[in-house]
């Protein structure tokens, strides 16, 4: 049962790991409220999934009491598990909206470059 459980845990951890990788790339691209929110949320989600998998693994492997009363930590983790995806997605939507500025800036800079090059060429041709 244990090897299967480890494989399933790794598959479930792979998705937040890729999201974490993407968020780190987003944070490197632009450092604002959106990417900081995304990074904090995905780190919390990743830690929660890892903790849940670890606690389930220890519960199944120890063969002790099957079910114990949920502790205060478990209720905090449950609350965070419900809040973190919402904050992550708010950050993601914010990132998509703020990245609009980068495309606009690229268009403006490209246009400016063309204009400056034209002016420079005209100036070079007018001079003997």
């Amino acid at each position: 049962m244990a090897p299967n459980f480890i494989i399933i845990s790794l598959i479930y951890l792979l998705v937040p790991a890729i999201f974490l990788f993407a968020t780190v790339l987003a944070f490197r691209a632009q450092r604002n409220w959106a990417t900081i929110t995304m990074l904090a949320s995905i780190c919390i989600i990743f830690l929660i999934i890892a903790y849940t998998m670890f606690s389930l693994y220890t519960m199944f492997s120890s063969r002790g009491p099957g079910f114990t009363e949920p502790s205060a930590l478990d209720s905090i983790i449950e609350t965070l598990f419900h809040i973190s995806p919402i904050t992550f997605i708010i950050g993601l939507v914010g990132f998509m909206c703020t990245s609009k500025k980068i495309y606009r800036q690229q268009d403006e800079l490209g246009y400016e470059k063309i204009q400056l090059t034209k002016k420079l060429n005209a100036l070079n041709q007018s001079q003997p």
Binding site: F19, F21, A22, Q30
Partner: peptide, 11 residues
């Protein structure tokens, strides 16, 4: 997630 990573790279 993979598409998002590619998008972030492009950004």
């Amino acid at each position: 997630a993979i598409s998002l990573a590619v998008f972030c790279c492009r950004i």
